[in-house]
Design a binder for these strands. Structure first.
Lengths: 351, 351
DNA sequence: CTGTTAGCGCATTCAC
DNA sequence: GTGAATGCGCTAACAG
């Protein structure tokens, strides 16, 4: 026979301790002004412990219209980068009495809006939106209500919302640095596997590549720039063709670089001997394949996001802040000097 | 001047529509028995739309002690496997009026307990716990309360909680099949990079390896079995030494296999020529490195988990179910027949 | 058919 | 120093 007892309420504690509900509230919340006798305090605490009393968060949130909850909206779970930022936010907020909940949109704007509305219907205090190529253009479906509801909103990974607090990597310089690395190795024909023009991160990374090439006075053949999306990559043939035209490829994302490694391996193009490859993001698996890539300081970004959120909760009308984080380049085995032009070895595509 | 209006309540709708709050509730919830005139219904709906009324989920949840929310407790975000299962649960539940929220424990049992308690304090309807090597032995810190609170609990990835609904892969057979694949290629000295004895998945994968070897009448030298944890892998040297003693290594996890690939590459052991390598899990990056691995049917597992949860919510006393899912082996380029014993090429470690 | 009333669990203002 | 009364927004008995 399972005990179907209702869970204990503060009233139950009050009854057991022979005091009023108010006193229980005062004791358990350590309320300042209230001068409760030591004897009463002890009796209340004993009663609460005895019953295993825990305050009902719903009742409190309903009363205050505040739930001490922040939600984090992400396209999917699959990114070391996102994971790091979320962990940073989580660490910051959980140490300050807030909890962080996550939902995934699966790149579906309708689902995203539903998820956020559900949060707004539950007195959420803050929303962190991780920009997504697909849903970005639909954020206004929910963002306007979030702002009207005085909820602290913050966006990660895009500069396209100047009215909001935002946290981003310095994508331009990150891309520039990794391209400089290739240039310093002696590469002159360098390709870029980009991710289109929807995400400012993609645009910035392409821009960084262009700047590096320009500063080195290396011309860019426009056929060296391919890729329109983080999500759908160019065909194997397009990637292969690019590798035949250049001696190095900078990819705007590690996942894209991973795909490049696969294609080149399958077609007999050796990395880095025949073609160097770089990524962006330092995903967990990149050491395993020796991919040279760009490290983003995800923990710091997350902590900063947490700070901005709490500030915004306190001061809704303060001017929005954009925080940009420098990156590092981590050099592994996927980059090396290009083959000398007269090398005996021929690229398979040139045979 | 920001409008600081309180968000509209059902009472506001009632006032605007000139009806009582009850009528608003009946209309908006399409309550069966109540026979509301078409005219009234239209007036209420118009008023609700005009005010942009949305019901407050907190009030409802407080009243019913039910929030139509399920929480999912995961060690971290970084796993294609977890991602797939969570997506399956999400798809199933969101189509049935529930929402799925996720939290991460970062392998910290204290944090995990806090997170779950916060959910229990908010009338969560179900909990999905993804077994984790570190927190598994502490689940009773919160599990007992969850069960007493009549919350539907389900565990993924471990058979160690026979009292609970559980969803697992057929790890024994998955591991056995991938080992059989190596045996059929002609390997006789096969090593296993395991993950200890805490997680039943790790134990089962080791067991599957042993069964396959036994059935093929291949003896196992106990020095071929290394690895005590999913989280902390053996040293590079240990991995290298293992590769010198065998012609193939089955890893209990893709991440471990990835590490093996890195070490072998760094030390000049060619894969698959000198040593074949297999993983487990079909993580997103495995195609990029051509890793032969075991595919788990994550979506189906998630859907099944969703079904079990809803069943359990309806019938708390039903006998617990364990659902086991078959796996597939996906063969890529990291496995090949062993070198002939008299091969001219020598392993670097044997030189 | 619709409105009045009560109460979910809590914090809080105001008496005593 | 402590307690009675109020209301957050909602649904659901129960009247009428």
């Amino acid at each position: 026979m399972v005990s179907m007892h209702r869970r204990p309420s503060s009233r139950d504690v009050a009854r057991l301790a022979n005091v009023s509900q108010t006193t229980v509230s005062f004791v358990l919340n350590r309320r300042e002004g209230a001068n409760i006798s030591e004897e009463t305090r002890a009796r209340v605490e004993k009663a609460a412990a005895e019953l295993g009393y825990r305050p009902n968060r719903l009742a409190d949130a309903l009363l205050r219209n505040k739930s001490y909850t922040v939600c984090c909206v992400t396209p999917s779970r699959l990114s070391t980068y996102h994971a790091g930022v979320v962990e940073g936010i989580d660490n910051y907020l959980s140490a300050r009495g807030y909890r962080l909940l996550s939902v995934y949109t699966h790149h579906d704007p309708v689902r995203e809006a539903e998820q956020v509305h559900a949060f707004l219907d539950s007195a959420v205090d803050g929303i962190v939106y991780f920009a997504d190529e697909v849903t970005l253009e639909f954020v206004d479906n929910w963002l306007s209500r979030a702002i009207e509801s005085n909820v602290a909103c913050l966006v990660v990974d895009t500069r396209s919302r100047p009215g909001l607090d935002a946290v981003v990597s310095d994508d331009v310089n990150g891309s520039r640095q990794v391209t400089d690395h290739l240039i310093s190795l002696g590469h002159e024909r360098i390709g870029h596997l980009g991710a289109g023009h929807v995400m400012s991160t993609a645009v910035d990374r392409l821009e960084g590549y262009r700047i590096a090439m320009k500063e080195a006075q290396l011309p860019i053949d426009e056929s060296w720039v391919i890729g329109n999306s983080y999500l759908s990559l160019p065909s194997d043939q397009e990637i292969f063709d690019l590798a035949c035209r250049v001696t190095a490829i900078t990819a705007a994302a590690d996942d894209s670089a991973g795909k490049v490694l696969q294609v080149l391996k399958e077609r007999g193009v050796r990395v880095p001997e025949d073609c160097s490859v770089t990524g962006f993001g330092n995903q967990e698996w990149t050491p395993w394949v020796g991919l040279t890539t760009v490290v983003q300081h995800t923990q710091e970004m997350g902590i900063s996001a947490g700070q901005l959120l709490l500030q915004r909760m306190g001061e809704l009308s303060a001017p929005p802040q954009l925080r940009t984080f420098a990156t590092d380049t981590v050099i592994r085995q996927s980059t090396a000097p290009p083959r000398p032009p007269d090398s005996a070895h021929r690229m398979p595509c040139l045979i």
